[in-house]
Amino acid sequence: MKIYKLKLEELDTLVSEVIENFPSGVVILRGDLACGKTTFVKEIVKKLGVSDDVTSPTFSLQQCYGDKIFHYDIYNHGLEHFISLGMLEELDRDGLHFVEWGDDELKSILQSAGIDVLTIDIEKISQDKREYRLDYA
Score class of each variant (00 low, 15 high):
24 S>A: 14
25 G>A: 06
103 D>A: 08
92 D>C: 15
116 D>R: 15
49 G>N: 04
68 K>D: 13
52 D>Q: 09
3 I>K: 15
132 Y>H: 04
54 V>I: 09
66 G>A: 10
69 I>R: 02
22 F>W: 07
48 L>Q: 10
94 D>R: 11
99 V>D: 05
24 S>I: 14
79 L>H: 05
127 Q>R: 14
65 Y>P: 06
41 V>C: 04
54 V>C: 06
64 C>I: 15
76 N>K: 11
28 I>V: 09
75 Y>K: 04
115 I>A: 12
54 V>K: 04
122 I>F: 00
47 K>A: 11
124 K>T: 13
121 D>F: 14
66 G>M: 06
45 V>C: 09
30 R>F: 09
27 V>D: 04
15 V>K: 00
58 T>C: 09
112 S>Y: 12
51 S>A: 14
133 R>A: 11
63 Q>P: 12
12 D>V: 08
56 S>I: 06
42 K>E: 11
65 Y>G: 09
124 K>W: 08
101 W>G: 02
39 T>P: 01
87 M>A: 14
99 V>N: 05
36 G>L: 01
7 K>D: 03
85 L>N: 09
130 R>T: 03
126 S>A: 10
128 D>H: 05
76 N>M: 13
106 L>G: 02
22 F>M: 08
131 E>M: 12
28 I>K: 04
109 I>H: 09
4 Y>T: 02
82 F>T: 05
135 D>G: 07
126 S>L: 09
95 G>K: 04
41 V>P: 03
72 Y>I: 04
113 A>E: 13
122 I>S: 01
69 I>H: 03
56 S>W: 00
73 D>T: 00
22 F>A: 02
50 V>M: 09
64 C>Y: 09
93 R>T: 14
70 F>K: 02
57 P>W: 00
73 D>A: 03
103 D>E: 06
73 D>C: 03
64 C>G: 14
133 R>H: 10
74 I>F: 03
50 V>R: 08
15 V>Q: 01
107 K>F: 06
106 L>S: 02
12 D>M: 07
107 K>L: 10
42 K>M: 05
28 I>E: 07
44 I>L: 08
24 S>K: 13
87 M>V: 10
42 K>R: 13
86 G>N: 08
107 K>D: 12
59 F>G: 07
121 D>A: 15
64 C>L: 14
32 D>G: 08
72 Y>M: 06
133 R>P: 10
16 S>D: 08
69 I>W: 02
71 H>E: 01
52 D>P: 08
3 I>T: 15
103 D>W: 05
